[in-house]
């Protein structure tokens, strides 16, 4: 029988290894740390290089009960969603690898979230759960600066991930992360060049590569995921080819992306051809996530524990290739 010579790519570059969270030994309070990145080949190409660190799944929680979330999610989390500490506990026991505390734009009183409230929510989550924590501000440059700087200062040494660092506010967020021993998550809108550019800008600030995660923004299934998918493939290829400004591990938010689509969010007055609501919503979230896992995601932020369970099973399979 002829022997087929299997072509192996050899790459000059690799993805940076990034550790989230700090235990007491390293000046933090986390019960353990998690590490992502370190790849020297495309995702799950173990026959070339055993994948250094598996993709991890974080669950998203909010600082207060989010009125705009799908009832499917709110019913599922129930009373736990009423305050961030109980939600953090529930998410930890659901099996999350890490938590994302995504701050709301407004407090329950309808006024913009105050720095004091944001710091309090963050501290409550840190006390309730030992998981590594990512804190995302609402995504408006000025408000984000106002919330993230005090959070960063109040949690020095925890090795939190501070987001969202965009081209409009990178100076402030990168500076406070460096000063207080945190990481940053950069975000750019579905474009390889913009992702690289922001990476260059924050690196120009002097923040070390092992403190940067990048969120290339992906779009959800049916709503532009093909852009995000290809942007991630291109970024990962560039990273392996040695482009130092694309080598950050990638964090993606398919939970938020999927659950804002009508397909996942809404159960009434939709076409019968869409099928049963809950299962459709979970498929929407897991398929969005799965596509992103295939294209190189390192941290996947989800909203539904069942989606997490299914995706984790898939990642288990992808990580263990029988000889």
């Amino acid at each position: 029988m002829p022997q087929v010579e299997i072509p192996k790519d050899s790459w000059s570059g690799s993805v940076t290894t990034v550790t989230l969270g700090a235990t007491a030994a390293d000046g933090g309070t986390r019960s353990h740390t998690i590490t992502v990145g370190g790849h020297k080949a495309l995702p799950f190409m173990h026959f070339e290089q055993k994948m250094a660190h598996r993709p991890l799944i974080a669950l998203e929680i909010k600082d207060h009960r989010p009125d705009d979330w799908s009832p499917l999610l709110l019913d599922l989390w129930g009373d736990a969603a009423n305050d961030p500490a109980s939600w953090a506990k529930a998410a930890e026991s659901a099996g999350a690898d890490a938590l994302v505390l995504w701050l709301s734009q407004n407090g329950t009183d309808g006024k913009p979230t105050t720095p004091q409230a944001a710091v309090a929510s963050t501290k409550a989550v840190l006390q309730a759960s030992g998981l590594p924590l990512l804190v995302f501000a609402p995504g408006q440059a000025e408000l984000d600066n106002a919330l993230l700087v005090p959070i960063s200062e109040a949690t020095t040494g925890e090795r939190l991930v501070l987001g969202i660092c965009e081209d409009k506010n990178y100076r402030t967020i990168a500076a406070t992360a460096m000063a207080n021993g945190h990481l940053i998550s950069t975000r750019t809108p579905m474009d390889v060049n913009l992702a690289k550019q922001l990476n260059i800008l924050v690196r120009d600030m002097g923040i070390p590569p092992d403190r940067i995660l990048m969120d290339p923004t992906t779009g959800g299934l049916g709503y532009g995921i093909e852009y995000g998918y290809s942007v991630m493939e291109r970024l990962r290829l560039a990273a392996l080819q040695g482009d130092g400004n694309t080598q950050s591990p990638m964090i993606v938010t398919p939970g938020a992306e999927a659950w804002k689509t009508k397909e996942a969010k809404v159960g009434h007055d939709v076409p019968a051809t869409w099928g049963e609501w809950l299962e459709r919503a979970i498929n929407w979230e897991t398929l969005t996530a799965m596509a992103l896992v295939e294209s190189g995601a390192d941290i996947i932020v989800l909203r539904h524990p069942e989606s997490m369970r299914r995706l984790r099973a898939a990642i288990d399979e992808l990580m263990s290739v029988p000889a």
Binding site: D191, N193, L194, Q197, N245
Partner: peptide, 16 residues
């Protein structure tokens, strides 16, 4: 469009 975005940086997004 792609090449333009890439060049819309000083000196260029692809520093190499």
């Amino acid at each position: 469009y792609e090449a333009f975005t890439s060049a819309l940086f000083l000196p260029h997004t692809d520093l190499s």
